[in-house]
Design a binder for these strands. Structure first.
Length: 221
DNA sequence: GCGACAG
DNA sequence: ATCTTGTCGC
């Protein structure tokens, strides 16, 4: 079984290691990562994690890697990282050209204990990360305008601290929820995601990682 | 007590 | 989180 009390404690410890700061240096390579499961409704199950690395700001793919393994921890809102990070780490180690920043499919610091999967991964790898989720998890916010580029801020519901942005990446399409993971800040996170969006709802790194997995997954069925 | 709840 | 198909709106 999985001890969620201990996991929550671990999150509180790791949260203290997050460094929120403007991005240091320049971004030449940006990565997107994602996971897929052979049976997403059963645990344990086989999982596949992938990273797609793109040149920035050209968004040309320069490398793709993936790793497979057994997923034994169930999904519980607030503890996604414990389920997905082990395989993500293995895939990350296979990358030859390490990215300057990773866009993770999930939240950064917009999280009940301030440590969503993007922040968790960023601390463990000591790499700049940005969280880009498709649904809200925590905090209060107003919906942004309907036009691409419109955004609003996400605040902590107790401290009112600004945590991230709700960003409209495509006209009349549901917005995404962006927040810094590690070694980035809200502005860096928002700008990076918006600058990697083309004509789809999700930023290219995330979208391509997802497509890549769909490809790989077929070979395992 | 009730609703909400990343992937 | 998977997969597929159909429908609707811009």
């Amino acid at each position: 079984m999985f001890d969620y009390r201990k996991a929550a404690y671990a999150q509180e410890i790791l949260k203290k290691k997050i460094k929120l700061q403007p991005f240091k240096g320049s971004i030449n390579l940006v990565a997107g990562c994602d996971l897929t499961f052979l049976n997403p409704f059963k645990t344990p199950t086989e999982g596949i994690a992938a990273f797609v690395i793109l040149k920035y700001p050209e968004l040309e793919v320069v490398e793709r890697v993936y790793a497979t393994g057994k997923i034994t921890i169930p999904y519980v809102p607030g503890f996604l990282a414990f389920r997905e990070i082990p395989l993500l780490i293995r895939a990350f180690r296979m990358i030859k050209k390490k990215p300057d920043v990773i866009i993770v499919d999930g939240h950064g610091i917009v999280h009940p204990r301030g440590l969503g999967i993007a922040a968790h991964l960023g601390v463990v790898l000591n790499v700049p990360t940005v969280g880009c989720a498709k649904k809200p998890l925590y905090g209060r916010f107003n919906m942004p305008g309907k036009q691409k580029g419109n955004y609003s801020y996400i605040f902590d519901k107790y401290t009112n601290e600004k945590l991230g942005v709700v960003l409209r990446t495509k006209d009349n399409v549901k917005p995404v929820f962006v927040s810094p993971g590690n070694l980035t800040d809200i502005e860096t996170a928002g700008n990076l995601v918006f600058s990697t969006v083309t004509s789809y709802r999700l930023p290219e790194p995330t979208r391509l990682a997802h497509n890549f997995l769909r490809e790989i997954r077929k070979k395992f069925l």
